[in-house]
């Protein structure tokens, strides 16, 4: 965590072609071991989700009662046919973990996309227009933030019923207040800055100020926030599944697997172990990536001073 943030000289910003930018990002990655690890894991996880049918050794839904409850390969009674063992219905754990990546990443990605868009627009309006509009928007935001997030999500999920689209919508909407608050704060800070003031006095239009001066400065903090929120959503999705409130039980998701594993915890402990490991690795990935992005995108917030 103490890896030094690379010192950025002004010369590195000259003539930015995309090759130069890419090379620059590469250099930044090389200097941060945590960031590098997060980046590599992130690519691997995304590839796993995309190519799940190719990578998975078995059909994640195929039941085989004769091979049920097999421990991992290195334990007595296990076989390399099912390296991580099988669940109570004889479905291959490894294949189910691989397919579970899809559910988690889908919820995380689209959830953050919706939350980020909603939050950014409302935060931008609140921060830029100010006055009563600001008061009204932030009033609603504060109400939603006053309800403990987990309670909120559980209640809404119970009301709407369990399917993937509902889960994405729930996270997209309930998580947007955080994006709104951060966006508004940034907009207020940017508006105070000298360059926006001088643009206004030079007669720049509202659109120009928004798109040329404010939006580019918002991207950094929002991408960092999105990374951490994606990690949080993957957590909450698994938790909802665990309570039986997320995707239907037939879908191989990490939370659903944990829920089954919990019932057989003392007899077949591996059923609950692997999905937890998968969630922890994914969360670690997004956290490392988020820490690195924060350093790179916002040099004011060096990690050592956080």
């Amino acid at each position: 965590m103490t890896a030094a943030t690379p010192q950025v000289g002004f010369d590195e910003f000259e003539e930015q072609t995309w090759q130069k930018r890419l090379a620059y990002v590469g250099r930044l990655l090389q200097r941060d071991r945590g960031g590098m690890l997060g980046f590599i894991l992130f690519i691997l996880i995304v590839l796993t989700a995309i190519f799940a049918p190719v990578i998975a050794p078995h059909d994640p839904l195929k039941q085989n009662l004769r091979a049920a409850k097999q421990p991992p390969a290195w334990q007595e009674g296990g076989s390399w046919e099912q390296p991580l063992g099988t669940d109570t219905l004889g479905r291959d754990m490894l294949s189910r973990i691989i397919f579970g990546t899809r559910v988690s990443l889908t919820v995380g990605f689209f959830g953050v996309l919706i939350a980020g868009t909603l939050g950014m627009v409302s935060g931008l309006v609140a921060g830029y227009v100010g006055g009563r509009v600001d008061g009204a928007i932030m009033g609603v935001v504060n109400i939603f933030l006053a309800i403990p997030y987990l309670v909120f999500v559980v209640v809404v999920a119970a009301i709407l019923g369990r399917n993937l689209l509902n889960v994405i919508l729930i996270f997209g909407i309930t998580d947007s207040p955080i994006f709104a608050r951060v966006t508004r704060g940034e907009v207020l800070r940017i508006r105070e800055s000298g360059y926006v003031e001088s643009a206004v006095s030079a007669g720049a239009s509202t659109g120009r100020i928004l798109f040329d001066h404010i939006l580019p400065n918002l991207i950094g903090p929002l991408i960092t926030l999105a990374t951490f929120e994606m990690s949080a959503m993957i957590f909450y999705e698994a938790g909802l599944s665990f309570l039986g409130l997320s995707v239907p039980p037939s879908v191989p998701s990490w939370g659903n697997m944990l829920q089954v594993g919990r019932q057989y915890l003392t007899i077949y402990p591996w059923i609950a172990t692997w999905p937890g490991v998968a969630i922890a690795i994914t969360a670690l990935t997004f956290n490392l990536l988020g820490d690195w992005l924060r350093d790179v995108l916002d040099p004011r917030l060096r990690r050592s001073r956080k």
Binding site: S231, F235, G239, L258, G261, R262, G276, A280, A283, N287
Partner: peptide, 10 residues
């Protein structure tokens, strides 16, 4: 930050 509490509990 990375270990889910429901899994840790198990």
């Amino acid at each position: 930050q990375t270990i889910p509490n429901f899994w840790l509990a198990l």
